[in-house]
Amino acid sequence: MAISEPAVLTRGLTKTFRGRPAVHGLDLEVPRGGVFALLGPNGAGKTTTIKLLLNLLQPSAGEMRVLGLDAVADSVAVRRRVGYQAESQHFYRNTGVGELLSFCRSLYPRWNQERVDRYCRLFELPARARVGGLSKGKQTLLALVLAVGPEPELLLLDEPATGLDPLRRRQVLKLLVEEMSKEGRTIIFSSHQLQDVERIADRVAFLLRGGLILSRPLEQLLAEEKKVRVLFPGPPPAELEKWPGVRRVAREGSRLLISLSGRLDEVLVRLQRYEGAAFDVLDQTLEDIFVEYAGGEESVWEVGEDD
């Protein structure tokens, strides 16, 4: 029974800091297996959510289950099976890399030393180096190695590629590909590197102001989120915004730019009914979609005015 439960399930999760909500009524469901990307602008609540899942922060309201366990009551059991890499990890500065690794090893029931050694060689993290003497990027990599060491069922990575050069970033991606190839592994990561997300995510979720605005398989998202540029010979249909799938209509001079969320075929069929209407379907990248959603609530008809 427990095995069929999702990797993460939250219901009405809320966290307020001095009355200000950082996460507000979040209902998030992350299926087991695969890579789940948490996206959203700064301050959307990604880091807070991850810290809540680890019980570093206490929820103000709502429920959380991680790997079938209550994330608050069974937090230690959860953390035994979860690897975590913080956005900016603070370490004991005067500790050696090797010492830190063997200490962490002693805390977990399982530890894959062979893999840890391999990653340390790859990332050039010598056991005798002092943690405080490592560059910021290397510290991020060390945190990543520490996160994968215990062979966790769930990896929670908060911006794993921040501040890394392209070579290191690519190495981190390969590490993630290797991790996700293991049976039953789930990876949740937050990132602003949307091209990396496009490379490895199975599913993406957008957070905005502490709430979830969408959670969909990446390919479905890219297939459904389209823009259609239309030039109607006469006045545009009055009910255009209420057509199925239409999220937003912006004016571009005499043309209209329709943002669609699914139902592309239906909309195209409707458009073909208008004699002389010219239209073109535009693909969107994940970044376009991100900006579109994060940009939020500019009101219809007023944006994109270029005359």
Partner: peptide, 9 residues
């Protein structure tokens, strides 16, 4: 592989 091209990988 070009992510960000608007074409699924």
């Amino acid at each position: 592989v070009e992510p960000g091209r608007g074409v699924p990988i």
